[in-house]
Amino acid sequence: MTAVIETRRLSKQFPNGRGVHDVTLRVEPGAVYGFLGPNGAGKSTFVKMLAGLIRPTSGEAQILGFPLGHLEARRRLGYLPELFRYQDWLTAEEVLRFHAKLCRLPAPVAERRITRVLADVGLSQAAHARVRTFSKGMQQRLGLACALVAEPQLLLLDEPASALDPGGRRQIRELLAELAAAGTTVFLNTHQLEDVESVCTDVALLIDGRVRAQGRVDEILHPEPVWEFDVGGWSDDDEASVRAALEALPGEAGGGRIERIERVERLPGDAVHRLQVRLEDAEQAAWFNALLMAGGLSVYRVQSKQRRLESWFLDWTAEKGGSTP
């Protein structure tokens, strides 16, 4: 199957030495691909190359099987720039009509799409208002509507939610999920890690212009299941006895081996300790819970601990010397 985006050692070298270097990635049809990185990592430069705004200095890339910048590639993509402005002397509807003309949409199709995308981004009521009267959030929505107006197969979004309030961000997340469900491929360059967690299927991390890590979001967020137990009456003696009980196990517990207690911490202002234990599944968690109860401890809460993308991001940026966003 043809990748929607495929780059091989794609590079852009600026005279000051910055830019992006040897970026190789592949975005499959229907994916929502999160592109992360600290400030100045080169994310926007990469997205601009995909949009045909910047010429690569080396490497190869294709969008939907066409070379970067090819008219056919641009006909099939929608792009929301990071720093943009639309013609503030026009109404929202006129801006969209202009973009529909640039995309060569027939007039009846254009009118139908304009009505649809204005509704999708929540701007139907402001269709006839001049853009100069729009708040930054409304302009961001208009930008998204422009990107969507020609029903693109690929949506390149550079910080689409940066100016939106929590309600607006949620709306955009829902819209992206709908688009993905309808088969639109989304390439999302963002600092909003929770957006990536909630809508992206794949993610890549760019640091100093190079891709340092990439993979499926669910694999990154769930590399090894860790469970948390909030326990009352815990003491150092208990830790030793629980560890001893684990050591004494014949090797199988709940269908697999319990590796270790990863961490024990006392919760602030409370007589409760939180144990982090690496377990394979809920059955093992139930077994470990029974072990604690048998030891005379009170278990207040048991929860599977999900790794946050933030910790993954911070681990990488700290390891590679990148700054944090």
Binding site: K48, A51, G52, L53, L71, E72, R74, R75, L77, Y79, L80, P81, L83, F84, R85, Y86, Q87, H99, L102, C103, R104, G143, C146, L156
Partner: peptide
């Protein structure tokens, strides 16, 4: 202003 950034990626 960034206006051309939205126009030039069009076909």
């Amino acid at each position: 202003s960034g206006l051309l950034l939205a126009v030039l990626p069009r076909p």
